[in-house]
Amino acid sequence: MSSPRLPKRPHDPDLTVAGEEFFFPDVRTTVNLFAIHTRSVRRDWNYPPHEHPQYEINIVLAGEQVMVVDGHSFIQRQGDLMLLRPGMVHSSRSSGQGFTYFCMHFDIDDKLFLSLLSRLEQVLFPADGAVAKQMGPALSKLLDLSALEDMGISGDSVAKRMRIQSAVFELFATLWEAVSSEAAHLPGRGYVQAELAHQIASRLQGRVNQPYRQAGSAEKQDGIEGISSELGISVSHCNRVFRSVFGVSPRVYLSELVLHEAKLLLADPQWSVQQIAELLGYGDIAHFSRQFKRWSGQSPTSYRKSVAPESSSE
């Protein structure tokens, strides 16, 4: 998370003259990748019916395969993409000739992304369709990583894993863009709720990142009311939708964001607790100290000593 703009110090340039500023969104997404591989098989190859708890992306690179998904048979030709949801029973076999395919299993904790994927009724996306075409360049970048062995980057090296993660996130971004238009016409209250909850979360994050907050803004109870008004929904609906997606109320979520920001600032001994309280929008240091202790079980000064033992006293 980006720290808010800090108070002006005597030897600093004039920080009160605001220039252009842009906050990138926080990234708190966890992705687990399993059994990423390419394989060339013979004309008599087959894989028995099975299921797994992850999503699967399967693309035929050459030839064609027969894929049976939940009892429905599909001919998957070169460039065709299949997106299988967790729990789908599927099997595959050659269609009388050998073929080459790419396969990747994954799970991801982004609720909005998962909600979008869960709405899709389609499992096969043909090579000449919009989804497969859009994903082509990102997929090629991922497949090119097989050449890393020739570059001396082999095995389970950190560099190789980082490159794989980078390519996979690019693939997911393209998948999101491509699939969003496909899913736009489908019913899906869950997706709408997840999207609204993420809009609320984004605005809560903006409240924390907002530089030079007004004194007492963190103590006011109108933060959620303001966001509800911006989105044109009631406070009760705002709370209900947010809790259904994130499992906590918006107020608790905001408290967690403020606590995280407070810890970042306390880890830097050049800023006093008084300054940090002001930055976070508290009218007085006593209230900030009480809130911080309630959240973390430690006073701000005690926490600072635990992470920066040589810091000077407040």
Rank of each mutant, 00 (worst) to 15 (best):
G155F: 06
A308V: 03
Q298R: 09
H11S: 13
S229R: 11
N58F: 13
V17R: 11
W176Y: 13
R203F: 05
Y101H: 15
G79S: 09
S91N: 08
M104T: 08
P137C: 06
T301A: 07
P49D: 06
L15K: 14
H260M: 05
D156Q: 13
L204P: 11
T100V: 05
N58K: 13
T174Q: 07
Q97G: 07
D44S: 13
R243K: 15
M1D: 06
Y191D: 01
D70I: 02
Y47H: 13
R304W: 02
Q298M: 15
G87P: 04
D107N: 15
A184S: 14
V273C: 00
F23T: 12
D284K: 14
R28G: 14
S217W: 04
T174D: 03
P211C: 09
V235P: 04
A132D: 07
V252R: 15
H11P: 00
L61K: 03
E51C: 06
F246N: 04
V131D: 01
V241G: 07
I285V: 15
L15Y: 05
L259M: 14
K133G: 10
F22T: 08
E195A: 14
A194H: 07
G297L: 01
L148M: 15
A197E: 09
N209D: 06
A178C: 05
G152Y: 02
A201N: 14
S234R: 10
S157H: 09
E56P: 00
Q76S: 08
S302A: 15
G71P: 08
T30N: 11
F125L: 09
Q122H: 08
S2H: 12
R294V: 02
Q97Y: 00
L257Y: 06
I233A: 09
Q274D: 10
S306L: 06
V241Q: 08
P13M: 02
Q270K: 15
S234M: 10
Q122C: 09
Q291E: 08
N58C: 13
G223A: 12
Y191S: 12
K263I: 00
T38H: 03
E310G: 04
M151R: 12
C238Q: 12
K8A: 06
P4A: 06
A218M: 10
G216P: 11
L257S: 05
G63W: 02
I276Y: 03
Y191L: 15
R207L: 12
V192G: 02
G19C: 07
